[in-house]
């Protein structure tokens, strides 16, 4: 999708959002390659503000027909709630829930300068912030939008059932017997959490920005839930963090951060759930692609090569591990 076709509607929308006096000029748009669940654009805008001329960048994060099984509702509410408690997230400027402006719901947020390229310099600060997230008091009204697990056993069971539900709803042709078997193993071996906390759901390198050797913000809050913090630690170690540091290095850093040893069997369970997350959410690409909802070739890549690769990893972890 190009924003060019919707430029008139977008300019009017941004003018209202930013309280521009008169016309707003859209001086540039750049789609970011990173991030497959949303189309992310950096927009250069210029307008007459309340205190004079303004030139700034804003970010538009646009839904992709339910790609990867999420919408913006929780994401926006979570970002706003975390912003209120001074957690480092970009400030949400607006949330458009209809398809009227860009053909899909989207939200806009402040542009925060920085880099998402991995840097070992900021790893420990990032882990401390993730630990801080797990310590945020979610029992305030700010987080009422998140479903509260009814027991310590609920997050694991709920995660597996939710993910497999997404998978089954997006199967094209035939289901994978290997996925079904792995899901049953996970159901039979679900672990109870020691505590319920806010969980980012997609943490690690690539989903935070750093600037001048400090973490600027944490990104991508679409999978945030109340759950087991081991969900996040496993994701950092084996999913987003795996290309950058060895497993034992991540574990040592995390243990230093939280001040106690990690329970390896719980960690292994959540590693498997996170691989299942890839398997199941990637399946949404397949259906959107073959139904012609979104013909973009990145969906074909995720539906085929990426999906098959994680199915193999799931089998290795669950059935052969």
């Amino acid at each position: 999708m190009s924003l060019k076709k919707r430029e008139k509607e977008l300019k009017a929308y941004l003018a209202r959002t930013l309280k521009a006096k008169g016309e707003l000029r859209l001086c540039g748009e750049k789609r970011i390659t990173m991030g497959q669940s949303r189309a992310m654009y950096i927009l250069d805008v210029a307008y007459e503000g309340e205190e004079g001329p303004v030139e700034k960048k804003v970010v538009a994060r646009i839904e992709q027909w339910g790609h990867l099984g999420s919408d913006s509702r929780n994401e926006v509410a979570t970002m706003r709630a975390l912003h209120k408690v001074d957690f480092p997230v970009a400030k949400v400027l607006s949330y458009e829930t209809t398809n009227d402006v860009l053909g899909q719901p989207f939200f806009t947020m402040d542009f925060v300068p920085g880099s998402s390229v991995f840097s070992e310099e900021v790893v420990d600060e990032y882990l401390q912030l993730l630990h801080k997230l797990h310590r945020v008091d979610y029992k305030t009204a700010n987080f009422d939008h998140l479903e509260r697990p009814e027991s310590l056993a609920a997050p694991a069971r709920r995660a597996v059932d939710h993910l497999y539900g997404v998978y089954c709803a997006h199967v094209v042709g035939e289901p994978s017997p290997l996925v079904a078997e792995c899901v049953q193993w996970l159901r039979n071996n679900a672990v109870a959490a020691e505590e319920i906390t806010l969980v980012h759901g997609d943490p690690g390198p690539g989903n935070y920005m750093h600037h001048d050797g400090r973490i600027a913000i944490l990104n991508d809050w679409e999978f945030t839930a109340l759950g087991d913090p081991y969900d996040d630690w496993a994701y950092v170690i084996w999913m987003r963090g795996a290309p950058y540091l060895p497993e034992e290095d991540w574990i040592a850093r995390i243990e230093r951060t939280i001040g106690k040893p990690l329970d390896r069997s719980r960690l292994h369970f959540w590693k498997a759930v996170n691989i299942l997350k890839g398997v199941c959410l990637d399946q949404t690409s397949h259906k959107l692609y073959v139904d012609g909802v979104n013909p973009a070739p990145n969906l074909l890549a995720i539906a085929t090569a990426v999906h098959l690769d994680v199915v193999k990893k799931l089998c290795e972890t669950v059935l052969e591990g």
């Binding site: 290997l178 990145n298 074909l300 890549a301 995720i302 085929t304 090569a305 990426v306 098959l308 690769d309 199915v311 193999k312 089998c315």
Partner: peptide
């Protein structure tokens, strides 16, 4: 597993491009 490996092999150009 044999079918999975065959499909992974077939999708290798897609993975490389991605």
């Amino acid at each position: 597993y044999a079918q999975l490996d065959e499909e992974i092999g077939a999708a290798a150009p897609m993975m490389g491009a991605f």
